[in-house]
């Protein structure tokens, strides 16, 4: 019974988390010509480790600016700096965590 409860909780949490990423990131980026994975690789090349990438993303979402963006200037000139932070720290953190887990390189190289 307890096991079932924990499983349900995990599923609900996971659905809620996926929502955070899908709702706040995927929907808007779908219209852009560059995939979220490519953007992730740009962040990875700029920031390196897991915590650094997450902190970099978080900072960018809070204070978006051309000069701190990891994207090429051509891209920024064409599409501009995108701002979608809705003052929801918890949701932002969840979205970033999902983003990292989804595209991280560790464990994917052969």
């Amino acid at each position: 019974m307890v096991r079932m409860f924990i499983l349900w909780c995990a599923i609900l949490l996971s659905l809620n988390a996926t929502d955070a990423y899908d709702k706040n990131c995927v929907k808007c980026h779908a219209s852009l010509p560059i995939s979220l994975e490519k953007i992730f690789m740009q962040y990875l090349a700029a920031y390196g480790g897991k915590n650094n990438v997450k902190v970099g993303l978080d900072h960018y979402f809070r204070y978006p600016a051309k000069d701190i963006s990891v994207m090429p200037s051509e891209f920024l000139n064409k599409y501009g700096v995108y701002y979608h932070y809705k003052n929801n720290d918890n949701e932002l953190k969840k979205a970033i965590d999902i983003y990292w887990e989804k595209y991280k390189v560790i464990g994917r190289l052969k």
């Binding site: 390196g48 480790g49 897991k50 915590n51 650094n52 390189v105 560790i106 190289l109």
Partner: peptide, 9 residues
């Protein structure tokens, strides 16, 4: 290894 000394591959 990444800058946090975590093994990537």
């Amino acid at each position: 290894y990444d800058l946090e000394y975590v093994k990537i591959f």
